[in-house]
Simulated assay, not measured.
Amino acid sequence: MEFYTIALIHLLAVASPGPDFAIVLRHSIRFGRRAAVMTSIGIGLAILLHVCYSLLGIGLIIKTTPWIFQTMSYLAAAYLAWIGFAAIRSSAGSYTDQQNGQSLHLSDKKAFVRGFLTNGLNPKATLFFLSLFAVVISAQTPMNIKVFYGGYLAFATGLWFCLLSCLLSYSKIRQFIGRHGHWFDRAMGVLLIGLAVKLVVSDLI
């Protein structure tokens, strides 16, 4: 029952719109399936970072030490805003290659790093996993089971976004995106900047 509870909570969390969803959607639209999948893998592996925080108790230190939490919030906000402003500057001409069936190029390394940083710098994700391991998972649960939970959460997150990347790569969707891609890009930019502002504002309140 503990595992099923964790799996359900995680599914609801990962399916909700947020920085991870926005960056995968943007990379699918702008750079194609491969870049989006590499971004998804980066997001999935970043989950292990939050799991380690929680298992080692570092997450509690982050939460109870205001300046560390604020620093993480500001770094995450600055990173999301930077990506967002780049997306807003997207022009219709930048999607000419996509209309011809090709995608703009983003290296595997850059796509992976962007996914990893988007999730890894998100303090909300740290708090989510800290709460999950502190409240949902019993203190009597063996460490090897907790490690298994962490591995599952990382795998499930990466798989979810990989499936989303593949869905957005279907030909009809790609053709539609090719015609309106710059508007999607700008919308994702606004969303990312909005998430950045929300991080800063919620931290100040």
Rank of each mutant, 00 (worst) to 15 (best):
R186N: 07
A35F: 09
L60G: 05
G18P: 15
V136T: 11
N144E: 13
V51Q: 10
G32I: 06
F184C: 11
I58S: 15
K146F: 01
A46V: 03
Y149L: 04
L80V: 15
F184G: 10
H182T: 06
K110C: 06
G150C: 05
I68C: 01
A111K: 01
A7S: 13
G57Y: 06
H105W: 05
M143P: 03
A125R: 14
F31H: 11
S40Y: 03
I173V: 10
T96G: 12
T65E: 09
G120Q: 00
L132A: 06
T71R: 07
G59V: 13
S131F: 09
I62R: 09
F155I: 03
S16M: 09
H27C: 01
F133A: 05
I68M: 06
L45A: 06
L127E: 03
F128G: 05
F21S: 10
R174P: 03
V200L: 05
A92T: 11
A46S: 09
L195T: 06
L45M: 08
A81G: 07
A156I: 15
I6K: 08
T126K: 03
I137N: 09
A187N: 05
S107N: 09
K124Q: 13
H105C: 08
W160I: 01
L117N: 01
I43W: 07
L199D: 03
V51D: 01
G42M: 02
I205G: 14
L45C: 11
G42P: 07
S54G: 12
I88M: 15
S90Y: 00
T157K: 00
M1W: 12
I47L: 03
R174G: 01
L8E: 12
A187P: 03
S16T: 11
Q70N: 12
H105K: 13
P123T: 00
C166A: 10
K172Q: 13
F116R: 00
P17Q: 02
A196E: 02
S73D: 00
G32L: 10
I193T: 07
I88H: 13
L60F: 09
T141H: 07
A87H: 10
G151S: 08
A46G: 03
I83D: 00
R30M: 00
P19L: 04
G18A: 06
Y53K: 05
A139I: 08
S165V: 05
A86S: 08
Y95D: 12
L192I: 00
S202D: 14
M38E: 06
Y53E: 08
D108Q: 06
W82V: 14
T39S: 05
F133M: 12
V24D: 01
P123Y: 00
V147L: 12
F128M: 15
L60N: 15
T71L: 15
S91I: 02
R89E: 07
L168S: 07
T157P: 07
S202W: 03
P142M: 09
P142N: 13
V201L: 11
N144C: 04
A78H: 14
W160D: 02
L49D: 02
I88L: 15
I47M: 07
M72K: 01
I61Y: 14
K109C: 15
A87P: 01
